[in-house]
Nucleic acid binder design. Sequence first.
RNA 1: GGGCACGUAGCUCAGUUGGUUAGAGCGCUACCUUGACAUGGUAGAGGUCCGGGGUUCGAGUCCCUGCGUGCCCACCA
Length: 846
Amino acid sequence: MAALEGRYDYKTAEPALQRGWDESGIYRFDPQRAGPHFTVDTPPPTVSGRIHVGHVYSYTHADIMIRYHRMKGEPVFYPFGFDDNGLPTEIFTENSMGIRARDVGRRAFIEACLSLSQQVEGQFERFWKRLGLSVDWRLVYSTIDDRSRRISQAAFLHLLEGDNVYRQESPTLWCTTCQTGVAQADVEDKTGVQSLFTTFPFALDGGGEILIATTRPELLAACVAVFVHPDDARYKDVVGRTARTPIFDQAVPVLADPRADPEKGSGAVMCCTFGDVTDVAWWRDHKLPLRIALTEDGHMNALAGAYQGLTVREARRRVLEDLRDAGLIRSQVAIEHTVGVHERGGHDLEFLVTRQWFVKLLEHKDRWLDAGRRIRWHPEHMRSRYENWIEGLNWDWNISRQRYYGVPFPVWYCRACERIIPAGAAQLPVDPQETPPPVSACPACGGTDFEPDPDVMDTWATSSVTPQICGSLLEPFGITPADFDARFRPMSLRPNAHDIIRTWDFYTVVRSLYATGDIPWTDVLISGHALDPSGKKISKSKLRTAEDPMPMLEQFSADAVRYWASSVRTGGDTNLSEEVFRNGSKLVTKLWNASKFALSHIESGAPAAGVAPDLNASDRWLLARLHEVIRRSTAAMEEYEFAIAKGETERFFWTDLCDNYLELIKLRLYGGATGRNGQAAGAGSGAPGPATDGAAPDGSGARYVLAQALPAVIKLLAPFLPHITDAIYGAGLGGAGPTSVHVAPWPVAPADWDDAAARTGGEAIIQVVDAVRRWKAERKLSVGAPVGSVRVICPPERRAALESARLDLLGVTRAQELLIEDAPAGEALGVAVAPVAGDALASPSR
RNA sequence: GGGCACGUAGCUCAGUUGGUUAGAGCGCUACCUUGACAUGGUAGAGGUCCGGGGUUCGAGUCCCUGCGUGCCCACCA
């Protein structure tokens, strides 16, 4: 074996190792190798945001699990993607380049989006490599590339054939800034919005009035009814009468509906088309007329009369002024409430009646829920996020966006009869605005005038078919999509952070069930969020500056950052902590130094493979502990509890192996009978020299154990710290086997290491060591200071272990003699230490 | 308002199916340049396991309840 020399310099070592991985192709997927395979539906990060520590956190989690499965011998399919289509990219492009899509025109804007995303993707790939992800970089897609557009369009046409998608004109969530319809999942809460809750009267036909209260007086022009609760005694006589809106003097009916809350405001509410979801429901259920007062860009239209052309906010102020001037405001209170806004930019949302494509969700809620139960969630409780979302769904999924940069709908419409003309499979990917339909005449009416669909798909409509896109990446390797489905679906793993359970995970399940009837993957790994050092969510402005993770990798090493990322229980949030980075760096250094030491002894006399020499109690203890650690660590990895696995190994390495075992065996390693300061190591019995009870004084037992324990620790930590472990492994730990630890087999402990008696025996040995160390510490002596005698009174059943480790105990305690005596029945182990030179002050230390 | 987590040492967290005296790292204190490592080692101080009930021979762990924190959802007149 080669020795490790000098110090480990991660700054040069990490990039060099990464180049080596690239060149040797150890992460390349071989689809021909027999299963079970481990196939990963990697999250394509959106190019519209910078990479931030949150990415580092969750991508590291996935990579750890992937490396584990690779070491288990499973062929690993680990592709990578970039999400660069759709509205997020458009907004990113508009903001980065200071342009507006509607100003520069469709074609030019698409070009701008493409060039910007390509630039960003290059930076992203360099970053992921620098973090040490074990991606097969031959398998890369972007959600706007030809392949993804083709697959996305084909999947849409498949939905169309199955009647699982429909086009309908109906009230839709609408972003007045982006000027597009959006989906329920695109809405996020904005808290602390200041509003005025104003009460004013509607006159009742036949006399009297009814007070209504609203925060949206500008929608008065869109009022179509007034609702009260059917049990509200105040309004019993009013129901069925006609009210007249102030200012506009529109006649509207007063209706009863249990959704009106008697506790709120005056208990009477105006229903407008549309102020909120309830309005939509009322409009639908009570078959009310449509009275739209808003334009698509958030201004008042002609219906608003004098207010036409004003923005919603201006109109609101003006209507209130006019009501006040008319003396109609009965009360007004300032309130702070939460409103739903478009999550891309926090823009105001309205409900407008528009024509959109919807994927059916509501009528199959049971199927989605059932699929969620067939998928293993890690941690398990994250499934309830998925279920809650489905249970709360109110709308089918609007997948059309009135924008430019995305996957077009591969359909045309007959202008004569509105028949939908789908693209032919051979045409895909297709932009219907630039390509004629596959037929020259409408099959329904014979019409020859066609209108291309003007919209593009929601970005999730494409990223929800990533399993199909992933599969297509293997076409150059002779795997057809049908092969892929048959052999590799459901895929093994979907890793992502918890904020996109309701979108990416949910939509992918839906699309997979529609496409194949089966779940998309068997396991989902959910990561929490990385928080700033004080535990707060990292703000967007901060993400762009202080928390840029590339300098972090350079300052602390990729291994140290990965150490941090893998220190918290699966699914948990964590704080950014330089302290933990430093601990990671320390572990890296310690691994290097301990390995340097161990290797220098293994190479000078490693026993032949498979031949176990005589082992003493220390040796058997270490192997028994190693067995336990391998078992626990493997069990934790199987459950995706990587932090627990890492913690087990780390404690074993640092405490058992380094602090105790390596110290115990030094005397044996350095030459047996002759210890430091020329003292006779075996002097206790008065007879220097030969072995005690099976402990080979030449250290072959210790070297054998080191030769087992070191590679095992290196392998157990390899998924977490891929660089330092491979640097050490490369010094020769692999023997004639693989040259990289990352394709070496995950450790398996022989059953005969599992030895409960060896563990308790070892604990007795450590007790003696600890007692002597404490004795020295109390006297402010160096750990290496010699002592006269160590007298151990121990339970008889522990005696054999201590005798067996006599040489080790003499070495680590620097005692001139070690006396072992039986304790009376039931008494615990005790240790008494006497100073050198027969000093009478022997002191019990326990 | 509903759901899901969480609340253990100054800080960050671990604590298997209930089982002796509740653990680790960091920080703190004292000491030690020991032959792999001072990015090290040894020892020490530090906890009414959020509060209150209950089950049990026994509760950090199980049940009920209260309080607090975070996230998701709903509400949005």
